[in-house]
Nucleic acid binder design. Structure first.
Lengths: 350, 350
DNA sequence: TGCTCGGGTTATAACGTTATAAATTGCCTA
DNA sequence: TAGGCAATTTATAACGTTATAACCCGAGCA
């Protein structure tokens, strides 16, 4: 706030233009403050860390001086010395980036991380390499202090690896591993259960569901919720085969259209993603069917998109931004230690 | 590839469990390789840098050893020593995250950065602080070697600041500053020009356009292209006031619906974003109007969304992923120096 | 007087890397 | 045979920070 020194950080490594005079003002370091206060560098470092072994009055004097010159610790030096990176890695599958899936999460994460010393680094996971590679790399080379990822599998290799390495992480989605670990999940069981109930209540007699790929845990949650509901009600049902929530929209549309053209077509659809819901809508539209009259649809909504889509459809909301916030928050707690893992788990209600 | 040592990086700074024996295998450093080859640390460092002053045979020997033990340089140490961070900061406005605007860009950027030593760090810019703050912070504390950002303004403070500081950057969108600087932009002039022409060709006689907020450069490009077309053709036109492409979808819908209910309603709409296009569609639908019969709509398409939206509308595609690729590519060139700035500019065609 | 005690401060070393200057070697020339 | 040169290699120092152990000094005690 004081002394808004406009220019700084100039001549980072440019040819030594002249002798390195103190210059207008260089980037302030501990040494700067040490000279300013007449104390030793060590003392300054400890004073800034509010070490109670340093006299209270000294601490205040140092902190005032630091604020004066706008001191900010050098992350590289801290990292080299302490081994802590102050980085949190978000391992993102390009698949997830479709239609802002990852983005709302990112927004939640950055919001939580604001005010902490942590930076969020996007570590892309390219689909031509095993899922665990980026995670291994991060741990092995200590590229971060903690890891966030999603698309969790029942027996997830990454979880197993990270647990064994004792490396802090939070994943989106649960596993079926015996060892408890931090996670944030959405109650996909209730999602499909409620979705099916809604459809049945509105008169549907043959439900059709599109599930995520089988390898993901939430495939099973969704399937289970769906099956429970249809069994309870005793209605007909179908589980899409050949397409998943990860399929391209065109593929989903064609598949659904083909099915609708055959005998005994489903009259109620459950879509766990916005893309596939749009595809179902376009398929029905193209066949001259009308949503709400000929068929019904319940979709999971993760953005404001469906507020503008016509005809209106039934949706159940998943707050990914909140999930991101939570994941980052739990990871911070996990890294701080002290909290038992059992309390670092959350299932977001529908 | 050889020696896939499963465990590593354990006990980073945990209490000194025992004397620090060489251990199973610690994280390899230059020293490790030096001992392995019997050379000095300096020599190893230079050999890995392929310094021609080191004997060719030595270089090969060292590089082989490095590969053997899976050596990877410590980023913190490099950064501390050289001042280079190997980080590229993407300054993202939360606004941009809506519906994956930022995400496709991120995908393009990470793809380009793959194989380079650079990491992409998301630096959120919260709207309660001036746009230039995160940029200042990054430069002042050398948090990155280069900056990417968008939502460029004609007399953009960030561009001015970065130019003056000599700090590498690429922005999405142009300025009207005299000094040339790297940028990637989309030809929004042609977008609106062509959009207007299409609408007129299909019979529209009163065009309605929703523009971005006035402070952004592309507001003016879009306005200009639009105005040129309507003047050339001599049709009626309206420019939305009170709402922009940044407005919430509900606000856009209400505004459009209100306008359509009045006298002399527009019969052709141009939307520079997917959200606003959806809002226009829902507004017309709610009034019982039919797209393609009563009104027409041309939208900018940045995802596959409109392939599934019914009724089908006319769209013009903007490849944000390609923009991200390009931005990262240009930034790499800019940081390497050597390329004249005049060649670090690109306008993507529609 | 010598001794410990403890609050407060400081010197030293180290994290892993690289720029700079210096050293070593063999070999060729004067 | 000393001097010099080129080709390699190496020692030293430094980047900014912090953990560790040491230091200083006055007070209290025997």
């Amino acid at each position: 706030m004081p002394l808004d020194d406009a220019e700084d950080g100039r001549q980072p490594n440019t040819a030594g233009s002249s002798t390195s005079t103190p210059g207008p003002h260089r980037k302030p370091t501990l040494k700067t403050i040490a000279e300013l206060t007449g104390l030793a560098v060590t003392t300054v470092s400890r004073a800034l860390g509010d070490d109670p072994l340093i006299a209270r009055e000294t601490r205040q004097r140092v902190q005032a001086a630091a604020a004066q010159v706008g001191y900010l610790p050098d992350r590289a030096a801290q990292r080299l010395r302490t081994g802590r990176t102050n980085v949190i890695s978000l391992v993102l599958d390009p698949h997830e980036e479709i239609l802002g899936y990852g983005t709302s999460m990112i927004r939640g994460m950055t919001a939580t991380l604001r005010g902490t010393p942590y930076h969020l680094v996007i570590t892309p996971h390219f689909s031509d390499t095993p899922q665990i590679d980026p995670v291994r790399h991060i741990v092995r080379n200590r590229m971060a202090d903690g890891i966030l990822f999603s698309r969790t599998e029942p027996s997830d290799e990454r979880v197993k690896f990270l647990l064994e390495a004792g490396f802090p992480f939070v994943c989106h989605g649960r596993t079926e591993l015996a060892t408890p670990h931090p996670y944030v999940d959405y109650d996909n069981y209730r999602f499909t259960y409620q979705a099916a109930k809604k459809l049945i209540a509105s008169g549907c007699r043959r439900l059709f569901i599109i599930l995520p790929p089988e390898r993901f845990t939430f495939h099973h949650h969704m399937r289970h919720g769906f099956m429970t509901a249809v069994r309870e009600e005793g209605v007909g049902f179908e589980i899409a085969s050949g397409i998943t929530l990860d399929s391209k929209a065109d593929a989903v549309r064609d598949h659904v259209a083909a099915r609708l053209a055959k005998a005994d077509p489903p009259d109620g659809f459950i879509c766990g993603g916005e893309v596939s819901a749009m595809a179902v809508m376009s398929a029905t539209h193209d066949l001259g069917l009308e949503i709400g009259r000929d068929v019904s649809l319940v979709a999971k909504q993760t953005s404001g998109l469906f507020d503008q889509v016509r005809p209106r459809i039934e949706t159940i909301y998943e707050d990914l931004s909140e999930a991101g916030r939570l994941m980052a928050g739990l990871l911070l707690k996990r890294m701080a230690g002290a909290t038992p893992v059992g309390e670092l788990q959350a299932v977001l209600e529908v």
